[in-house]
Amino acid sequence: MNLRDVFLKEFRGQTIGTVSSQSSSDESFQNEVLRPILKLQNELFIASFQNYISKYKSDFYSQTTEKKLAVIENSIQKDIKYRNALKGMIIGLFSVDEYSLYIKNSSGLNKRMMTMLIERLKSQIQLFEIQSSE
């Protein structure tokens, strides 16, 4: 393992969630790699989404909470350019070995990544509502 890989694993922190011998490889990857990266990058994701809504969703702050939640989901699911930028923020913190595992099932892992990221942003919706008073 090279210096970069060691640094990344130490920097990201420990596994979040349970990994057992019965866990699927995708579930193990999710808990050992994706969850720690999403937690580490949380502030960046929030800043990124705040920038996204200021550029593309100027009416965001005037919408109901339900519509705001829908905007979060739709922005990440349907705006391919934004989605790819978010994936890059995550994949950039993979070790080389983790990237090798990722490319074997990138489709399934991308779905997991984006689902977890959507839920993470939705659960912090109050951070996006605070901005409306500024």
Results as ranks from 00 to 15, higher is better:
132 S>Y: 07
75 S>G: 12
114 M>C: 00
84 N>A: 04
69 L>V: 00
132 S>K: 15
104 K>F: 06
5 D>V: 02
104 K>D: 13
103 I>Y: 10
130 I>C: 01
36 P>V: 04
50 Q>E: 14
38 L>P: 07
72 I>W: 06
66 E>D: 14
100 S>R: 15
105 N>D: 15
2 N>E: 09
133 S>M: 07
113 M>C: 07
116 M>V: 00
97 D>R: 08
121 L>A: 07
127 L>I: 02
129 E>T: 05
2 N>M: 04
71 V>Q: 04
59 D>F: 09
73 E>M: 10
25 S>A: 12
30 Q>N: 12
21 S>D: 12
114 M>G: 00
84 N>M: 13
26 D>G: 02
10 E>L: 15
114 M>S: 03
10 E>H: 11
35 R>A: 06
68 K>A: 02
66 E>Y: 06
45 F>D: 01
48 S>V: 00
122 K>I: 10
126 Q>T: 11
119 E>Y: 12
80 I>M: 10
87 K>M: 12
34 L>E: 01
41 Q>F: 00
56 Y>V: 02
29 F>A: 06
122 K>M: 15
88 G>K: 13
12 R>F: 10
74 N>G: 08
49 F>Q: 06
112 R>M: 14
31 N>C: 09
77 Q>Y: 11
99 Y>V: 05
58 S>W: 02
58 S>D: 08
24 S>R: 05
114 M>W: 00
63 Q>C: 06
81 K>H: 07
99 Y>F: 15
37 I>G: 03
93 L>F: 15
25 S>N: 10
17 G>S: 14
68 K>I: 01
96 V>N: 10
1 M>A: 08
108 G>V: 05
27 E>M: 06
38 L>K: 02
83 R>W: 01
133 S>F: 14
37 I>T: 08
61 Y>C: 14
48 S>Q: 11
14 Q>D: 14
18 T>W: 01
93 L>A: 04
47 A>N: 10
121 L>H: 09
12 R>W: 09
88 G>V: 03
39 K>Y: 07
112 R>W: 04
7 F>D: 02
127 L>P: 00
86 L>V: 08
123 S>F: 05
98 E>C: 02
42 N>P: 00
51 N>K: 14
7 F>N: 03
11 F>V: 05
66 E>H: 07
88 G>C: 05
76 I>D: 06
74 N>W: 03
64 T>L: 12
97 D>N: 13
69 L>G: 11
76 I>P: 04
54 S>G: 00
19 V>S: 10
1 M>W: 08
9 K>E: 12
22 Q>F: 13
86 L>R: 09
110 N>R: 02
84 N>C: 04
66 E>P: 01
12 R>N: 15
38 L>C: 02
85 A>V: 13
14 Q>L: 09
99 Y>I: 03
31 N>H: 14
36 P>W: 08
60 F>E: 02
54 S>F: 03
121 L>Q: 11
8 L>N: 02
42 N>F: 14
32 E>H: 04
32 E>V: 11
101 L>P: 00
42 N>C: 05
